[in-house]
Amino acid sequence: MASTSATATASWDGGSSPMNASYGKLMMWFFLLSDAFTFSALLITYGLVRSSHAAYDGLVDAFTFSQTYWPIPEKVFEAVPFLHGMELPLVFVGIMTFVLIMSSVTMVLAVEAGHRMDRKAVEKWMLWTLLGGITFLSCQAWEWAHFIHGTDAGSTLADGTKFFGANLSFNQYGPPDFAAFFFFITGFHGFHVFSGVCLNFLIYYNTVTGVYERRGHYEMVEKVGLYWHFVDLVWVFVFTFFYLV
């Protein structure tokens, strides 16, 4: 109080927040850092296993599914709902990326509205964010269903039998590890999206019932917003390393 020192070291002596962020926000940041390590471990393990498998080195147009090499992702993910039989590589996953980026924008607009204590605007943008999250999850459900059931042609095994789709021990697209990583990485990300949708709903509910207005600030919107952007961030990496590379 009496101290007039305004140096950076003095701010660590107590009574102030040297990082200029609340406890809750800091802990959200450090949780997200640890979550980044978890996702990195998954993606890096995928990198290790993929680089230890042979890559397809023939002509792209002549590509066929085989157990002996890792598939080209764009040859696997080329189906779009309602357009059965058409080859549209990566189009559906592109739509999913668009949906998730848009829901990140609406989330950050909700945070902005919260700073201004604009309850109606927070409600509006939280609803859009929820819609984006639910749309993404629905798209992923379709993608999984298609991946599990497989294509019309399937792939022919060494003994002449046909195999369609994928399970945890076998799949028509490539080595067993390919489907295992697809399920684990997109599944773990999808579960994060699901948790995010639940948290977003909680925020929306509390906004509508006026909890944050009575509290005098909308910091919870900001904290859950950080989590929601992180989910978008992880998808950017999954999109690149699982679908593009």
């Binding site: 040297p18 962020a21 800091l26 950050v108 952007h229 992180f230 978008d232 961030l233």
Partner: peptide
């Protein structure tokens, strides 16, 4: 990733100490 973390998550505008942490 830099745009998402810097702008959407606002990390670019936090204190330098938090950013580097």
């Amino acid at each position: 990733a830099a745009y998402i973390v810097g702008e959407f998550m606002h990390l670019k505008y936090e204190t330098k100490f938090l950013m580097w942490s």
